[in-house]
């Protein structure tokens, strides 16, 4: 097992014909992901990278049985793309797009309420279950199958962590980039729930950063609901308050947003804290030895 994506995932790519869409779809196919459809309005009926392209998600799902969508749609049109996928009943949407206006995401969240669609991202590197499926831009080669789940607000920091894990011989069940936006589709708690329920996941690595209270909420969840060990790193200890550090959500506004507060909450919940970003693999190894 694994979470969110596996070898039964039939991936649809929204924005498959764009340059980033093309490049990364090709990589997903090479990794072994079943990419069954692409959607680009106006290009329906054609084929791209050997994948049939449709004008609408509804038609693409009906004809190909796609059950997950990966989005590379530009920010001005991305929210509309998410809404279309929700409307079509897509079970999983992974949105890579960075820079979607906040009020567009407010509408998306409103529309998501009461629906069964799960949204990952936006502004995220995607999801991958090593050896089974890659739905995103995560670097395939550095992952190996195994029993550690990874959930992160950062893309490239996740690559650092995964390569540390892999070089220590620690494989991953699933890696989930929840993205750096202020209004992410899924939170740490959402993903921790899935890892807790997943038989193949023995431990979880959580990579947080400054801004918001998602890490504190994760700490609450972990202390009450998780039996599996969690290792965490929180980026941004040296970030000045009031400055947005790249990610829309990475801004310290009030004490809860500070790295130190998040680390405090997580360690109080029994989470093993990696003191530096280069010791995450090592810390995970120690935790696994104890299991």
């Amino acid at each position: 097992m694994s979470i969110l994506v596996d070898d039964s995932t039939r991936l649809l790519v929204q924005g498959i014909t764009g340059s980033e869409g093309s490049f990364h779809t090709q990589r997903c196919i090479e990794y072994g992901t079943k990419v069954v459809a692409g959607v680009t309005p106006g290009k329906g009926g054609s084929k791209h990278l050997g994948v049939p392209v449709f004008n609408t998600i509804e038609k693409a799902m009906a004809e190909t049985g796609a059950n997950a969508s990966l989005m590379f749609v530009p920010p001005a049109f991305a929210a509309d793309g998410i809404l279309e996928a929700i409307d079509a009943g897509m079970p999983l949407i992974v949105c890579i797009t960075e820079g979607i206006p906040v009020l567009d995401m407010v509408k998306v969240h409103r529309y998501l309420k009461g629906k069964s669609t799960r949204l990952i991202g936006p502004n995220c590197p995607g999801v991958m279950s090593p050896g089974k499926c890659k739905a995103g831009i995560l670097v395939g080669e550095i992952h190996v199958p195994g029993n550690v789940g990874v959930v992160s607000r950062s893309g490239t920091l996740t690559y650092e962590v995964v390569s540390q894990l892999t070089s220590l011989g620690i494989g991953q069940s699933t890696c989930v980039g929840i993205g750096g936006d202020a209004l992410p589709g899924s939170t740490f708690v959402d993903i921790l729930k899935l890892f807790q329920a997943d038989e193949d996941t023995k431990a979880v690595v959580l990579i947080g950063e400054i801004g918001g209270t998602m890490e504190q909420e994760a700490a609450e969840f972990i202390s009450h609901n998780m039996t599996k060990p969690v290792v965490a790193f929180v980026a941004g200890s040296t970030a000045p308050p009031g400055k947005r550090m790249g990610h829309a959500g990475a801004i310290i506004t009030g004490s809860a947003g500070k790295a130190s507060e998040k680390i405090k909450a997580l360690s109080r919940a029994g989470v093993a804290i990696a003191p530096t970003p280069t010791e995450i693999g090592f810390t995970t190894n120690k935790v696994l030895e104890r299991v």
Partner: peptide
């Protein structure tokens, strides 16, 4: 990457 950039500074 923003997370990595923060981690680099740290």
């Amino acid at each position: 990457g923003a997370g990595l950039a923060m981690a680099v500074n740290d």
